[in-house]
Nucleic acid binder design. Structure first.
Lengths: 348, 348
DNA sequence: TTGAAAGCGCTAACAG
DNA sequence: CTGTTAGCGCTTTCAA
């Protein structure tokens, strides 16, 4: 209703009001000023719903999260950093964030978000390499919707994704332990349906191989990224330490590392004294333990901004232009790989 | 375009399609079935933007967060729990979540979110009692928009809010220390522009008074809820412990408690041995320290669901009906107060 | 440089 | 019970 009043007060047509407010098409400076003044005077605020409808764009980026209340498989640190990063970029580029919790019961239908126009693009966190997920992603791709995965790649699929260099990170971690004189390095990994986990295994194995060490099978421990899963493996690791078949542990995330440290402490084994340990994520928790936990720092925040920027770029280009070269960032096909670094603390 | 096809295939008018899909108004079962089948066959999905526009409702709950990337004044634990809770309730009640990071540079304009129809209701996290904030909230209230504060109350304002019983929690924590035989209890609080902090002070003071203890002024320490601020007060606390004017500390959140413990450890003082300490939030971190940190558990997740339920209720009632009585939950005017509990660990 | 007018896809009176 | 019709508030041709 008010837009009409603005038009009247400024003595122009409604179309002109629209042009001025969107700064589109040619216009006389005088009209522009007149309209702006009228709008300001009336305190006019365009109706976002009408705009979205007329433009056929929601102006939203969908952010898809696994819904795991109270089941902290993922660290909250991880999500909140990435989310903040996405939020910063989205705000800067004029988009809002629509938060969508994936229902673990149902098989996902991401393409529907686009068909119903709820989002213009979307970013997926905590995605896993399982059949329903691949199907849902492939459908989005097929229908030409822009989306970006964070921290999960589907090698043969050419989905846009942003990841950190976990192979390098794991090599660093392993190298670090080797440099410190540890040679019997167990590896506590997470489930292999995360490409993340596979990368870490690759880096770990490669670095050991480079050092001419054949890793024993019983060095491989499988957790699920939760603290509990690390904690529960303490006895087994303690035996390894006692029998001298293990002198250090590289854990695929801090949560498991911390759980393991706690379990071992209860068995009388101290990190940094009786064994060395390196975690992954450089989360808040790594600074809370004693001794402090050496860890691989991942630029989650930057991964979030990168994901938002790239996916909006794809949206703008209609997916036509090739992926942009970004200064200093490795790119492998449609995957952007950000560098990680090692934070050394007392645990190693 | 497709809705027309559905109408044609089903042999009815577009309006009827609308009725069936929204299950509104009377309709013959046969028509209903026919339309549903046609819709399913054509894979019809209504356009959300058009619906929102026609209904003049966005279907979104705005969730407003302080934007503090990399400045972890608030624990990520706190936000992700509340957010998950809001998400669960929103999904259950058919709403989406629009995430909005408050720009710390600008004074907030929450009412605008409603005027532009971006949201139908909103929930504010990490709100502070400062003038710009009060103004922005009062404006929303004046314009009749439904909103709910979480963990922050404005006593004289009658804003809808959900909080935990921090007075009781602080009494519990203090009582616990007294029961353990500690009588010189320092209190490390956060800034008083959070009603949270004021509540804690009240509880602490009340419990000491009840025990007939006059608290010394130098027992009051002020941090800002960050780990660092706790850490930096270690020397001062250490002096207190050395001079026997302090034998225990109650900290207003876990982060500060943990920082303080770390600082004191560096000065050779161990929690649970040389002094007792109790934190607040029962965050992940409280389980990571050694000794484990006794802490007050706050039902963040439930606070989130409660906030969403209450604010949507207000939306539905057009703010007319009085606040509903919720079983077993204390209510003080427009504030719902959830109970907290004490988790005892080795630090006390 | 501006105005008139035709939608965007759906909902919601109002008739019938 | 169902069809007709008039918008919702804005954008965007197309003419002028």
């Amino acid at each position: 209703m008010t837009r009409k009043e603005v038009a009247k007060l400024a003595g122009v047509s409604e179309a002109t009001v629209s042009r001025v407010l969107n700064n589109v098409g040619p216009m006389r400076e005088e009209t522009r000023v007149r309209v702006m003044k009228a709008a300001a005077e009336l305190g006019y605020e365009p109706n976002a719903l009408a705009q979205q409808f007329a433009r056929r764009r929601s102006g939203n980026i969908g952010v898809i999260l696994p819904f795991v209340p109270k089941v902290h498989l993922f660290s909250t640190y991880y999500f909140s950093e990435i989310l903040s990063g996405i939020g910063e970029a989205a705000q800067r580029l004029g988009y809002d964030l629509l938060l969508i919790f994936r229902d673990p019961e149902q098989s996902p239908d991401y393409a529907k978000l686009f068909r119903t126009q709820k989002v213009d693009a979307c970013i997926l966190l905590g995605s896993r390499d399982v059949p329903e997920e691949r199907t849902a992603l492939a459908e989005m791709k097929r229908e030409g919707h822009p989306f970006c995965l964070v921290n999960q790649r589907f090698p043969e699929e050419s989905f846009l994704s942003v990841d950190a260099n976990h192979v390098a990170g794991s090599r660093m971690a392993t190298r670090h332990l080797l440099d410190r004189g540890y040679t019997r390095i167990a590896f506590l990994n997470g489930p292999l349906h995360y490409s993340n986990s596979r990368d870490r295994l690759e880096g770990y194995a490669a670095e050991l191989a480079a050092a001419g060490i054949r890793h024993a099978d019983d060095w491989l421990l499988e957790g699920n990224y939760s603290r509990k899963s690390g904690y529960e493996l303490a006895e087994r690791v303690a035996e390894g330490i006692a029998s001298r078949s293990v002198d250090a542990v590289f854990a695929a995330n801090d949560r498991m590392a911390i759980g393991l440290m706690q379990g071992l402490k209860e068995l009388g084994l101290e990190a940094g004294r009786d064994y060395a340990i390196v975690g992954y994520d450089d989360s808040d928790g790594s600074r809370l333990t004693s001794p402090g936990l050496t860890s691989v720092a991942v630029p989650f925040y930057e991964m979030g901004t990168m994901a938002a920027e790239r996916v909006l770029e794809e949206l703008a280009d209609g997916g036509v232009r090739k992926a942009a070269e970004v200064e200093g960032i490795a790119r492998d096909g449609h995957t952007y790989i950000l560098p990680v670094s090692l934070k050394v603390r007392e645990s190693s």
